[in-house]
Amino acid sequence: MSVAELIAPAARRPVTSQQLWGRIGIYAFLGAMTLFFLLPLYVMVVTSLKTMDEIRLGQIFALPRELTFDAWKVAWSSACTGLDCTGLRVGFWNSVEILIPSVVLSILLGALNGYALSFWKVRGGNVLFACLLLGAFMPYQVFIYPLVRFYAQAGIYGSLPGVVLTHVIFGMPVMTLLFRNYYSGLPTELFKAARIDGAGFWMIFFTIILPMSVPITIVAVIMQVTAIWNDFLLGLVFAGRENLPMTVQLNNIVNTTTGERAYNVNMAATILTSLVPLAVYLGSGRWFVRGIASGAVKG
């Protein structure tokens, strides 16, 4: 196959030389941009595989001369944050413990809210929903201090239930929006028929609505796993020292070390922290985009 054939548009037409240059331009631009977007990932990976001696030579783009996974081992099990030298694995398991209940609860509540709002005539429901949505636009800093006081009163400040509740609170606007929009697109006949047959609120929710919610639930899981795993602020404030999530621990490892920085360990730790969202992203393909698009305010 010649170059001209290779880069021609998929629909075959004779290609003029002007069009050929146009095609070359398109690929040159896309290729350059791909380099820009992939470069940090590349640098991060090669740095994590080098020894510190090699890093000190200062060739950030060079491939490692001798491959070593030591930095990864250190990052996972013995990197230090202050006096603790237990590595990122503590943060990893903390993040898992925060993630699972937060994702499950926020999605269940989102589905329930969406169902009640779109199928049942609840007075004041739309006003409530509008307030919730408005909250999604506000900077967290407006809510944080009073929440800290509330939590301290309730005895859940700096604990796992505290941080999970916080994720449920701040995930609620988008989750409710997601399910409400999805349910308002479903035909109401099924719901009406079930009502006439005497089925109640929960019966309809569990036997009719939830089974129809599989696609939107997948979108919700993708969004919440990414968002909660990547969270830094809420984990930092609400989780407490014992439950700090991986992102907070990563930042502590990299930015609070004294003495010479171990860049290879830092980069290995950075990659480890992004593995979960990256796996979600690569595994979910177009669902990820669907999540972004449906998470937007559409009314």
Partner: peptide, 25 residues
């Protein structure tokens, strides 16, 4: 390639660029 950064956390993004733009190395 263009969308994957959006899946990464801001902490990771910041640390990554801090290292690439590090003037010494």
């Amino acid at each position: 390639a263009f969308l994957y950064p959006y899946a990464m956390s801001m902490v990771v993004t910041g640390l990554m660029w801090q290292w690439i733009l590090n003037p010494d190395l």
